[in-house]
Design a protein around this nucleic acid. Structure first.
Length: 307
DNA sequence: TATATTGTTACACC
DNA sequence: TGGTGTAACAATAT
């Protein structure tokens, strides 16, 4: 489940090898993408396959960026002026992978773990393969097929990203801004707000639970019940937890893999996520799990205040 | 065999 | 209007 730290890790790892490479060819797995399901087109693309290929082949990957949980490949063409850049907007959703492999080696970039999937590529979950001018390849695999790859121009890209909330790790995301966001949804539950990409960008189920624990507030608490002190702790939690998770290259819940094909190192730091009925590290109470906003929510009934 | 899993969107309902 | 709950998407582990 790539959330902000995992997508950021992939972005950083992909930038080095992929930036500057020219896309020489694209392979789409027809069996996987439409034949087996009786579809005429690959639904993870926003264009018909032939059109998609025609637009992209020959373009250079100028850079890899991230906004919320989206990856953005900036594509340029030496024949065009710089302001003509095009973009690939990629969302890995729950189980998407981007695996980069040199023509001669084993360097890979991560995503959701697929059993032995990194060993033989392409595998049966591979939907799209980028083949670069130096014969290195980038595989887009997706076990559950929720992820997508969209080709966009600058205006379309801007429109697609317009509704996202602030990036939590930027200096622009201040306590004042956070307070203003809270003020707009007094009746919402804390975790629902943390998960809402239009409020704050990049938190998913794992880190939202962890932020609530850091803030010593139950995920189901209403925003308006938060004291100034609680607001501060939650704000600090967002920054601290995401920062540390990036340092540790993400969490390997469901065996997410990082750029070297290794598990992310944050899992041992998780305090509540995936720990239901286990002892709280602080007070030894048993961690509880409830359903909230359609998702599992984990919390310590002793450490995290009801109101 | 039934259930839980989750990022995002769509939709019904209060 | 805004919040909530549920379904959908999909394939896996338990």
């Amino acid at each position: 489940m790539p959330e902000l730290p995992e997508v950021e890790t992939i972005k950083r790892d992909l930038n080095k090898p992929a930036a500057g490479k020219i896309i020489a060819a694209l392979k789409i797995n027809p069996k996987r993408c439409f034949k087996l399901r009786g579809l005429k087109q690959a639904k993870f693309l926003n264009l018909p396959v032939l059109e998609f290929k025609k637009k992209i082949i020959g373009l250079k990957i100028a850079s890899v960026d991230r906004r919320a949980k989206n990856l953005i490949f900036k594509l340029t063409d030496n024949r065009l002026p710089k302001n003509q850049a095009k973009f690939l907007l990629i969302h890995l959703k729950m189980t998407g992978q981007l695996i980069y492999r040199q023509a001669d080696g084993l360097r890979i970039a991560g995503g959701h773990f697929i059993k032995n999937g990194e060993k033989n590529l392409p595998n049966k979950y591979t939907q799209l393969t980028f083949i670069f001018n130096d014969r290195s390849r980038l595989f887009f695999n997706d076990l559950r097929q929720f992820g997508w790859v969209h080709f966009l121009n600058q205006t379309e890209l801007n429109n697609r990203l317009a509704k996202l909330g602030p990036e939590p790790l930027t200096p622009q995301f201040t306590f004042k801004i956070f307070q203003a966001i809270l003020k707009k949804s007094p009746d919402k539950k804390i975790k629902a707000l943390l998960l809402d990409q239009e409020k704050i960008a990049g938190l998913g189920n794992i880190y939202a639970d962890e932020v609530c624990f850091y803030g010593r507030a139950r995920p189901q608490r209403q925003i308006k019940s938060l004291q100034l002190q609680d607001q501060r702790k939650l704000f600090l939690g967002i920054k601290a937890i995401l920062k540390k998770a990036i340092e540790k290259r993400g969490s390997s819940i469901n065996s997410y893999l990082d750029a070297q094909g290794q598990p992310g190192g944050y899992a041992p730091f998780l305090k509540v996520y995936g720990r239901s009925n286990k002892k709280c590290f602080i007070c030894r109470s048993l961690i509880k799990k409830i359903k909230l906003a359609g998702r599992g929510a984990h919390f310590c009934p002793q450490c995290q205040m009801k109101s």
